[in-house]
Design a protein around this nucleic acid. Structure first.
Lengths: 333, 333
DNA sequence: TTGAAAGCGGTACCAC
DNA sequence: GTGGTACCGCTTTCAA
């Protein structure tokens, strides 16, 4: 079907395109009856605004870009879910792209967003590809980083991962663990390093050795694999701090398969509090990151920045650090 | 930063906007040196095409819409993942919207897609809101439904859920189960009904009663809850066919907590083969739906339809039914 | 092979 | 309050 345009509505109603335009975007001075009549007619004709045209001529596109990385990590979805909801609620549309977790992929994704003339951008930043961030800055696009920060002054909502690592490790220590390994993620990312740092700090405080660092893919399989190739229990470990829940659950699976008892012989703790953790075997003790809150705050902050930008033509720098808390379940003694 | 336009490039290079346009979208006749020179200059100036303008004047937007429902169901993630990858590979952009799983939400989502002038649409159809589908038809937008079908002639990729239900139930029966319950999802959706039908068919074939239908939310919690309020084992059930893996895992969790042994006292089987299933306790026997394949085929089909439409100005109707297969793990005897 | 000019569907500014 | 009109940035005839 040929799309109905405001011009056609103008012809049918006898008003000018200008008047029709204002009636349909309820803006500017216009008599109420005129507006009602036009809207009525528009509805009848099945009019749907052309967002491309609107975005091209207007100052804003009412479109926000979201760049994801690991689509398969359950951690991200609750964040994406609230972002979607919050944006819809505010009448903003959403364009999605993926960084493929490479610098090049990120650059492409950012370029697409820029080309799409998004009003603002939300991204899970894979802490590589600073040039992408510079590009963003150059184009002056309001951006909020989700659950990370960068060296470039771009706003972000994040969590204090080092503190999380410290919190988790201290808990294991308090419960009597003596030899605790840290499982980092494959590509050493900022959050993984930060949690490791917190882990090391807690161990050092008690005069313990902090060299037992292993590496796994950020996935259930990754956890399973590292445990399959490394028999933590027989190596004398009685505690494992895994970079995230996915890895932790993978490890637990393998440890149980080997016939060891969790938490009696070894405690396992993860991070993120993904929904599945409550249903793993045993239910996973973890550090809860306020995922929904990250999404909500990020959208709020972004909208604020967009407003600020349209007013003063510069985008502010702002940051928020959210508190995480321990969720004790059954994988730790 | 002010965006660079082709007009500016035209001024700098001394060519006309037309020539620049063709050089940048490598289209039409143009001397190679001219093109190279223009592209070079464009790069230098940091030119990024304005997709809004391009979409407005051209025939296509190179943008595909994706409408999701349950963002939180892991079942969807791999599908979305490949869709994203496949679209990126083909230079297509992605707009995301959510139906909130209501007819109204779906209608809004579809409207946004139409307003965004997407070339094509992919959707997880929550089998309600036929009017949304009619709207789509009216606007002649190529659409492929993911993992469902509808009464409206719109193309789809789906699985034969009834057959799946039959397959799962028959397996339990073959392994000696005598009394098998079906857990449907809260809102009786098409796939849930279809699997139930298959379950009933298998039972009837053996002259068994098929009235034991319970209902749960499509979530881990939902499964846990129904099992918490209904002690299946003490009611004499020795088998459970759950609408999906999420519910199945939730139920297993609760059954284990009650102190019953799976599969010795009761077998549990799910559908979808989500990644958690391999790591649940016990590892879940399930029916594998080819999730990546659904995404891949859907994109392929959609692109085909878009091409067809630009040529003949009508969108074809096509359907694909994918085979599912049993994955035996440890939750069934 | 290249250029001029007319849209694409809206918005916004300036008259009336 | 309403209408005329010049754009927004790009593609697409049609000429040259």
């Amino acid at each position: 079907m040929k799309q109905v345009t405001i011009k056609e509505i103008a012809e049918k109603t006898g008003f000018s395109v200008n008047t029709v335009s204002r009636a349909l975007s309820n803006r500017g001075e216009i008599k109420k009856e005129t507006a009602d009549l036009i809207r009525q007619k528009a509805k009848e004709m099945g009019y749907l605004p052309n967002l491309l045209a609107r975005g091209l001529s207007g100052k804003r596109t009412n479109t926000i870009g979201l760049i994801m990385g690991e689509t398969q990590n359950p951690y991200h979805w609750p964040v994406v879910g609230v972002i979607q909801k919050e944006l819809t609620r505010r009448g903003q549309n959403l364009i999605l792209a993926n960084s493929e977790e490479t610098a090049e992929g990120l650059y492409n994704a950012v370029s697409i967003m820029l080309s799409s003339r998004v009003d603002g951008l939300l991204m899970f930043y894979p802490d590589k590809g600073e040039e992408s961030l510079h590009l963003l800055q150059k184009h002056n696009v309001p951006t909020v980083l989700l659950a990370t920060h960068s060296n470039v002054p771009i706003s972000y909502i994040e969590v204090d991962e080092e503190k999380e690592g410290y919190l988790a490790t201290s808990y294991l220590l308090d419960r009597g663990c003596k030899k605790i390994a840290y499982i980092s993620r494959d590509e050493d990312t900022l959050p993984s390093k930060a949690r490791q740092k917190g882990w090391a700090k807690a161990l050092k405080e008690r005069g313990l050795d902090c060299s037992a660092v292993f590496t796994a893919d950020s996935s259930l399989q990754g956890g399973n694999r590292i445990s399959a190739s490394t028999d933590f229990v027989s190596l004398g470990f009685d505690g494992i701090v895994a970079y995230n829940d996915l890895i932790a659950i993978g490890i637990m699976h393998n440890i149980s398969e080997r016939g060891y008892a969790i938490p009696e012989q070894i405690s396992v703790i993860g991070f993120d509090n993904i929904s599945y953790g409550e249903y793993s075997y045993p239910p996973l003790t973890t550090i809860d990151v306020q995922k929904e809150e990250i999404g909500r705050r990020a959208v709020e902050m972004l909208m604020g920045h967009i407003g600020y930008k349209t007013e003063y033509n510069k985008v502010p720098f702002e940051k928020v650090i959210l508190e995480s808390k321990l969720i004790v379940r059954k994988s730790t003694r």
